[in-house]
Design a protein around this nucleic acid. Structure first.
Length: 490
RNA sequence: GGUCACGUGGCCGAGCGGCUAGGCUCUGGUCUGCAAAACCAGCUACAGCGGUUCGAAUCCGCUCGUGACCUCCA
């Protein structure tokens, strides 16, 4: 478990060696989706990023508790503290019970995350299931003097908090600047300062999702759930908190303030933030309406899409960029990822058929070291794949007979590729999935292709080409090899 | 307006002081009945202008451009 994993800590603005608070245990919390719409490409990024982290930590032998929440209440439409609850709004539009909306999109989110081969989190708590705990934290913050009640709503007192602790340390903001820069929005006259945020909000009569409390019939503020649920399941201090960069301010800043105000100390050791997916250089997001849902990507059913892209193509596409860089969507980039991935899996299959000889013309240990160095360097998956592709060239050369490998090295190389491709990067061979359990198809293909080989032997190329062309039309690609043939579904 | 990022070859995308990133595309070659795959070779790079340095895509300054956050967003 001795690892050299370094992760970029947004709080410190630099890479730090990862040292868990209570080894071998690791606690990680990631902000999940607000379930009021179909998950889109943007949701896949943190899903995949923190899945790789989760997988790698487990690979290193840590006992990881991975908590990812479902936001199903308290997330408002306009200003954080005025306006309509997103879930309730969607429910009214669709003539549904709010929890029906929540369930529908939660299911869809799970389906898509599973398709992307992300492991389910250890705990996936819902905000609506933790109203009692949220009320308790509101009371705690009130008792500690960092919140005030006004007309049944409770607000966090940023100015007061800032005197003892520092508000804005994560996002690099200072309260004085906020004072002059925060937009004045209507309905905020209850607050002492415009940057104060709601911990508990009194519900308007038409508001559907509401719970009784000491202050009013109302609902919790959006930022509260993450502080509450991370504390409940990971303790007052835990290792890693992840989320999208767009949540850095105000959401994560408020989380820090709430947890600190309630518990007296900061809770998170390493803050991690994934960057955005862009489209034509602009952030892909709900508010801009320029998002492509995962449904649309998987089916190709969107005006910007030239074709469907498989979940693994999407996953690989993301892993070819560093998680802290923006990643620009385009058909060309996705197609390149699709082909690259296919080349990687072709090499994996080749690797498993390789024959050993008495010497190696390649340094497997050096490759292994490079791969670990890459992943240890703040999950640098693009570098990791660059090294794996160097290995692909070698694997293909061994198959072609221009390079060689010993039996021991071969075993080592197989393990290396298996560990990194499947266990850590979390990729899977989708073609193999299809082929599995289709023994009949295998038999039929053997018959067909052996017939073709005979035709070739007899120089009956018209027949052999016809078989190849017709199969191609049916979505099956034939590759002739030295001593036979290979085929794969496209 | 404030705060902070970023601008790399046809496309995507690493690198963060000296050493080929990688993937995809393109061109030529080897192999093959042809094709595909594979292998070999090649092709256009570091926004601009200064500065620091023996040496800069990489550090500093300025200019131009793009974006993010400051309001819900992964």
């Amino acid at each position: 478990m001795e690892s050299k994993l370094n992760i970029y800590n947004t709080l410190k603005r630099k890479k730090e060696l990862f040292v868990p608070l209570n080894p071998p245990h690791v606690g990680m919390y990631v902000c999940g989706p607000t379930v009021y719409g179909e998950p889109h490409l943007g949701h896949a990024r943190p899903g995949v990023t923190y899945d790789v982290l989760f997988r790698y930590l487990k690979y290193l032998g840590y006992k990881v508790r991975y908590v990812r929440n479902i936001t199903d209440v308290g997330h408002l439409e306009n200003d954080a503290d005025v306006g309509e609850d997103k879930i309730a709004k969607k429910a009214r539009l669709e003539q549904l019970e709010p929890m029906e909306v929540v369930q529908f999109y939660t299911n869809s989110y799970h389906d898509k995350m599973r398709a992307l081969n992300t492991l389910p989190p250890s705990i996936e708590p819902q905000a609506s299931g933790h109203i009692i705990e949220q009320q308790a934290m509101v009371q705690q913050i009130l008792d500690n003097g960092y919140a005030y009640e006004k007309n049944g709503s409770v607000y966090f007192d940023v100015e007061k908090y800032n005197k003892k602790f520092k508000y804005g340390k994560l996002s690099g903001r200072v309260v004085e600047d906020l004072q002059s820069n925060t937009r004045v929005l209507e309905g905020q006259d209850e607050k002492k300062n415009p940057f104060d945020f709601a911990l508990w909000k009194k519900a308007e009569p038409e508001h559907i999702m509401r719970w009784p409390s000491d202050w009013s019939d109302g609902f919790p503020g959006w930022h509260l759930e993450c502080s509450v649920m991370s504390t409940k399941y990971l303790g007052k201090k835990f290792d890693i908190h992840g989320g999208g960069m767009d949540l850095l301010f105000p959401h994560h800043e408020c989380e820090i303030a709430q947890s600190t105000a309630a518990n007296g100390e900061e809770s998170v050791h390493y803050w991690m933030h994934n960057n955005m997916i862009t489209i034509d250089g602009q952030k892909m997001g709900k508010s801009l309406g320029n998002f492509i849902t995962l449904n649309e990507l998987f089916s190709g059913n969107h005006k910007l899409l030239k074709q469907a892209y498989s979940p693994m193509t999407i996953r690989f596409f993301m892993l070819q960029a560093h998680y802290r860089s923006t990643l620009d969507f385009s058909n060309e980039a996705l197609q390149a990822a699709e082909k690259g991935l296919s080349r990687l899996f072709a090499a994996w299959n080749t690797l498993n058929k390789l024959e050993a000889s008495d010497k190696s013309s390649f340094d497997v240990q050096a490759l292994k070291q490079k791969c670990f160095d890459a992943i240890d360097d703040d999950l640098n998956t693009p570098i990791l794949f660059a090294h794996l592709f160097d290995g692909v060239k070698f694997i293909n050369s061994v198959a072609a007979g221009t390079e060689s490998i010993t039996a021991a090295d071969l075993e080592e190389l197989k393990k290396l590729y298996h560990d990194f491709i499947f266990n850590i990067a979390g990729l899977k061979d989708e073609l193999e999935d299809v082929a599995d359990g289709e023994n009949k198809l295998d038999e039929v293909m053997d018959i067909l292709l052996n017939t073709r080989i005979e035709a070739k032997k007899n120089k009956d190329f018209a027949t052999s080409d016809k078989i190849r062309d017709l199969l191609k039309d049916a979505g099956i690609i034939i590759k002739d090899t030295k001593d036979g043939f290979e085929w794969q579904l496209k």
